[in-house]
Amino acid sequence: MKTLLNIIWLVFGGFWLALGYFAAGLICCVLIVTIPWGIASFRIGFYCLWPFGQMVVEKPGGSGVFALLGNVIWLLVAGIWIAIGHVVTAVAMAITIVGIPLAIANLKLIPVSLMPLGKQIVPTDRPFVSTYR
């Protein structure tokens, strides 16, 4: 089931969403000072390609003061706008019955798009994981 949902997700938005995150990651890495955000953008981009069967968790050992500061900067500069985009897209996807799982996957991306530093993507055994640790 996870594979089928991931293929449907990839066709109906995941590919383009991941390309956007990859483009942002490239821009951040070129600017050198913003490399941590670039790496986080690549991580989110890969998560966007195959979100079902994965979840976002805090890195073990805590994320530290620099990750917190970086997350606040990210939230003010880009995070809030990306999260709004995910909500709008999720509402559009939820219009159809087939789109409801895709909308859930899109909403699952909001916490990591708001505060990406100090997070990691881990596999899970369930296709729908709504808990964010």
Rank of each mutant, 00 (worst) to 15 (best):
T3P: 01
L4W: 15
L5Y: 10
N6W: 02
I8Q: 01
F12I: 01
G13M: 05
A24M: 10
C28T: 11
V30I: 09
L31E: 06
I32L: 13
V33P: 04
T34M: 05
T34C: 07
G38D: 14
G38H: 14
G38Q: 07
I39C: 13
A40S: 05
A40L: 09
R43A: 03
G45V: 02
G45T: 03
G45Q: 03
C48T: 00
W50L: 06
P51G: 01
F52K: 02
F52Q: 15
G53T: 06
V56G: 02
V57N: 02
V57W: 01
K59L: 08
G62N: 13
S63N: 15
A67P: 05
L68G: 10
L68A: 12
V72D: 03
I73R: 00
W74H: 09
L75Y: 03
L76I: 14
V77R: 03
A78Y: 09
I82M: 13
A83I: 14
I84G: 09
H86P: 03
T89E: 10
V91E: 05
A92T: 11
A92H: 01
A92C: 06
A94G: 13
A94L: 13
I95S: 08
I100Y: 04
I104T: 03
I104S: 02
A105D: 07
L107G: 09
K108F: 01
I110H: 14
I110A: 04
P111M: 01
P111L: 01
V112S: 08
S113M: 06
M115V: 05
Q120T: 10
P123C: 04
T124G: 05
T124N: 06
R133W: 05
